[in-house]
C-alpha cells in the first residue's frame, strides 16, 4: 500500500461522516424521488412503476389551472411581487441607513430586528394586523378614507384585473414577506461600505447629484449583491411554506387562493399519501429553479458589474 493511497484513505476516513450523511440523507432521497416520480407510491406499499402518468397529470393540471396549475400561478404571483419589492425596499433602506445621521445604529437595529422574529410568531402577528374587521392596517386605511381590504381572507389579487387594488391573501403574504427584508438590507449595507469613495468623488467632480450617484455608482457596484439576493429570493419565494401553512391553517384558503407549490406538495405527499405525484412535482420545481437560475446567470453578464473585472 503506497504512502499516497494511505494518506488518501486517512483523508476519506476523516470526511466519511459527512460523506455518509451526504449519501444517505441527500443523494439517495434525491435519486429515489426521481424514480418515485414515475411510480405510484404511498410509503406503505412498494413503489409501482406507472411511467409518466404523474407528469401527464401535472401537465393537465397546468392546462386546466387546477391543483398544480393553481399552485404555480399563486407561487409565481407571490414571487414576482415579493422578490423585486424586497430588493427595492432592501436597497432603499440600506441607502437611507448608510447616511451619516444621528442614531444610525439604532435605526439599523430597528429595521433588522423583525427579521430575527421567528416566522411562526410573526405570522400570527400578521394575522391580527391584517384582520379585515379589527386589524390595525384596515383601521388606518379607514381613518384616511381608503377602502379596507380582506388581506388573508380575500380571494382576490390586487395586481390582476378585475380585482385591481383589492388586496387578497397572496398580496398579504407579499406584504408579510417584506417584514423580513432586514436580512437583505444588512447585506446591502455591508456591500455599500465596500464601495470606494473615489467613485463618488469622481462622480461629484463630474457634477452628479445624489440621484445620479445612486443610479450610476451605488446600483452598479451593488449589482453582484443584488444578483445574489435575486437568486436567493427567487428560490426562497418558490419554496415559501411556513407562513402560508400558518396563515391558511394548512389549507391554502380561501378556496386555494394561497395554495403555494410547497404546500400543495406537502399536502399531496403527507395527507393524500401520493408520494409519486409529489415527487414528480418536486422534480418539476427543481428543474424550473435550475433553468431560472441558469437564465439569471446568463442575463447577469449584461447588468452585473464586478469590481476589478477586466483588469
Amino acid at each position: 500500500m503506497s504512502a499516497n493511497f494511505r494518506r488518501n484513505l486517512t483523508g476519506f476516513a476523516f470526511v466519511s461522516p459527512w460523506l455518509i450523511g451526504l449519501g444517505l440523507l441527500f443523494v439517495y432521497p434525491f435519486a429515489a424521488s426521481l424514480y418515485w416520480s414515475f411510480c405510484r407510491y404511498d410509503l406503505l406499499s412498494p413503489p409501482e412503476f406507472i411511467g409518466t402518468e404523474h407528469y401527464q397529470r401535472l401537465a393537465s393540471e397546468i392546462a386546466t389551472g387546477e391543483g398544480f396549475g393553481k399552485a404555480i400561478w399563486n407561487t409565481g404571483y407571490f414571487a414576482l411581487l415579493s422578490v423585486p419589492l424586497s430588493i427595492a425596499i432592501g436597497v432603499g433602506l440600506a441607502t437611507m441607513l448608510s447616511w451619516n445621521v444621528r442614531g444610525q445604529a439604532v435605526y439599523r437595529t430597528l429595521f433588522f430586528l423583525p427579521s430575527v422574529v421567528p416566522i411562526v410568531a410573526s405570522s400570527v402577528l400578521w394575522i391580527w394586523l391584517l384582520d379585515p374587521r379589527d386589524g390595525i392596517l384596515n383601521r388606518f386605511l379607514q381613518s384616511v378614507s381608503l377602502p379596507s381590504q380582506l388581506w388573508f381572507k380575500g380571494a382576490t389579487e390586487a395586481m390582476t384585473p378585475p380585482d385591481f387594488l383589492d388586496f387578497g391573501s397572496k398580496d398579504a403574504l407579499v406584504l408579510m414577506s417584506l417584514w423580513g427584508v432586514g436580512n437583505f438590507m444588512v447585506i446591502y449595507l455591508a456591500a455599500m461600505g465596500d464601495i470606494p469613495t473615489q467613485l463618488y468623488e469622481a462622480a461629484e467632480l463630474d457634477g452628479a447629484g445624489r440621484v445620479r450617484k445612486f443610479w450610476h455608482v451605488t446600483v452598479p457596484t451593488l449589482s453582484p449583491v443584488i444578483f445574489f439576493n435575486l437568486v436567493m429570493g427567487m428560490i426562497q419565494s418558490v419554496q415559501a411554506f411556513t407562513q402560508v401553512y400558518i396563515v391558511s391553517e394548512g389549507t391554502g384558503e380561501p378556496a386555494s387562493w394561497s395554495l403555494m407549490l410547497s404546500l400543495h406538495l406537502f399536502l399531496s405527499a403527507f395527507q393524500d399519501l401520493d408520494m409519486g405525484y409529489a415527487s414528480a412535482m418536486s422534480w418539476l420545481l427543481f428543474v424550473f429553479l435550475l433553468v431560472s437560475t441558469a437564465l439569471l446567470f446568463r442575463t447577469s453578464r449584461h447588468w452585473v458589474h464586478y469590481q476589478g473585472a477586466g483588469r
Partner: peptide, 20 residues
C-alpha cells in the same frame, strides 16, 4: 381512501361559492 382530499376539495368549492 382519499377522504382528506375529498374534504379539502369540497371546502374549496364551497369557499369559492361563498367568498368569490
Amino acid at each position: 381512501p382519499g377522504a382528506a382530499y375529498f374534504q379539502r376539495t369540497v371546502n374549496d368549492a364551497a369557499a369559492t361559492a361563498m367568498y368569490v
